[in-house]
Simulated scan of single mutants.
Amino acid sequence: MAKLNNLQDKVVVITGGAKNLGGLLSQQFAEDGANIVIHYHNDSSEKQAQTLLENIESNGAKATLFKGDLTQVDNIKALFEHAQQTFGKVDIAINTVGKVLKKPIADITEAEFDNMQEVNNKSAYFFIQYAEKYMNNDGKIITLSTSLLSAYTGFYSTYAGEKAPIEHYTRAASKEFMERGISVNAVAPGPMDTPFFYPQEGEDAVAFHKSQALHNQLTDIKDIAPIIKFLSLDGWWINGQTLYANGGYTTR
C-alpha cells in the first residue's frame, strides 16, 4: 500500500513546528487526526510551542514537544528517537527549518557562511537521513526549499546557495528509498508573508517581491500547507521533485 488514505493516527514530525508555516502544519495535521511531534529551536520559541501543544491537546489530538538545535546531528537523531518512543515509527517527516541572509558576497564572513551552511544545508541532509531510518515503509519526507533557486539575482548567495543542495538530496534519497516506498520531495515557496521574511528586506524590496507574483502579494502560508498535505496523501505519486509554489514569482 503506497498511498496514505488519511492522517488518522499517523505520526508526523514537523521541524520548526511551533510557528509560521510549521505551526500551521502542526495545527492542520492534528485536526486531521495525526499525532504530531513539534520541534522548536530554543527558549525563544518555547512559549509558542507550549501554547500550540495545549491547543492541539484541548481539541482531542495528541502532540509532543522537542527542543533542539538541528545543526547538531545528535539532536536530529534524538528528535526521531523521541518521536518513536512517544508514538511509534514516523509516517511523515516535514522539515521547515531555514535561515535567510541578504548580503553582498564581498561582505559575508566565514562565520556567517558556516552558519548558513549548517542551518540550510547540513541539517536538511541529516534530517532526510534520520527520517528514513525511523520511518515506516511508504512514508513521506518533505523539505522546505526556496524559489530563489530559480532566480537570477544577487545578495542571497548563502541562502539560495545552501538551499540548492536540497534538490540533489531529494532526488538521490527518492531513488535510494524507493525500495521502501518512501517518497521524498521539496516544496519551494516564493517569499512568504511571515516574520521570517521582513528583517532582511526594505520597503522597496518588499514591493518588488510582491510585484512578481499573482495579485501583487507575497506567498501566504495558507497556500503552501495544502500542497504539503497533498504530497502526504493523494500526491504520493509525485517523487523526487522540487515543486515551485510561488504564484509565478520564478520558474525553471
Rank of each mutant, 00 (worst) to 15 (best):
L149V: 03
S150E: 08
S150L: 12
A151L: 04
A151M: 00
G154A: 14
F155H: 09
Y156C: 01
S157H: 06
T158P: 12
Y159V: 13
A160L: 02
A160T: 07
G161Q: 00
E162V: 06
E162I: 01
K163I: 05
P165R: 05
P165V: 11
I166K: 02
I166P: 06
I166W: 00
E167C: 10
E167K: 10
H168E: 13
H168Y: 08
H168M: 12
H168V: 04
Y169I: 09
T170H: 14
T170Y: 01
R171L: 10
R171W: 09
A172N: 11
A173P: 02
A173R: 05
K175V: 04
K175H: 09
K175I: 01
E176K: 12
E176F: 06
E176M: 07
E176Q: 10
F177G: 06
F177E: 07
F177W: 01
F177S: 10
M178S: 14
R180V: 04
G181N: 06
S183N: 07
V184Y: 03
N185I: 02
N185S: 05
A186Y: 09
A186S: 13
A186V: 04
V187A: 08
V187Q: 11
A188Q: 07
G190S: 02
G190V: 02
M192V: 05
M192T: 03
M192Y: 00
D193R: 08
D193N: 06
T194D: 06
T194N: 07
P195H: 10
P195E: 11
P199V: 12
Q200L: 12
E201Q: 15
E201C: 13
E201A: 15
G202R: 11
E203N: 15
E203H: 03
E203A: 08
E203R: 10
D204K: 13
A205F: 01
F208E: 10
H209S: 00
H209D: 12
H209V: 00
K210A: 03
K210V: 06
S211C: 05
Q212C: 04
